[in-house]
């Protein structure tokens, strides 16, 4: 136990500091503040990998590390589409995931938003459309906002989430 506590003490606090008004903010904390202000603790995200190369998933995972601390900003990844406000989709929609993507979208309660993350999801990326892929997510479900990049950085994904907030009804 002592070694765990001493390691925790030595590691210190890594999360980029939480927003305090009128102090200098890094890009990360500004985003955290806005997310927090708009969503409070209510935003729930369901992620669907619709054929990604797994690069985008690595960055989605990174959002949960101590540095970005997305959960600390009140944003959670949830296990069921029925609990989700936002569908976050990656990949160029493989034909083998087309039905699963559509069903996940349909299972979400209204109002709902779709965020396409990564070049594949935005425009088909390197894979384009062929016998096995449909290209952009918008070919299958309506898309509210996009985050380009291959893969987009965790900060870019946080910004994308913000873009969605402006579409949320007052």
């Amino acid at each position: 136990m002592f070694d765990i506590l001493s390691r925790i003490r030595r590691t210190g606090r890594l999360s980029e500091p939480y927003p305090v008004p009128d102090t200098d903010q890094t890009a990360s904390t500004a985003i955290q503040r806005e997310l927090h202000a708009v969503f409070g603790r209510a935003l729930c995200i369901r992620h669907v990998d619709a054929g990604s190369c797994n690069g985008c998933e690595l960055e989605i995972h990174a959002l949960s590390n101590a540095y970005y601390n997305l959960e600390g900003a009140g944003i959670r990844f949830v296990a069921s589409p029925r609990h989700a406000d936002v569908l976050l989709v990656t990949g160029p929609v493989s034909v083998n995931m087309e039905d699963a993507l559509r069903q996940t979208y349909e299972a979400m309660p209204d109002p709902k938003w779709v965020l396409a993350v990564g070049d594949c999801a935005v425009c088909g990326g390197l894979f384009g459309a062929n016998y096995a892929t449909r290209g952009p997510i918008s070919a299958i479900v309506p898309v509210d906002a996009v985050v380009a990049g291959c893969p987009p950085t965790p900060l870019a994904i946080m910004r994308g989430l913000l873009q969605i907030t402006s579409k949320r009804p007052a």
Binding site: D49, G91, S94
Partner: peptide
């Protein structure tokens, strides 16, 4: 096979 993207064809 769910993420099959036809990479060989590409």
């Amino acid at each position: 096979g769910y993420t099959h993207k036809g990479i060989a064809k590409r």
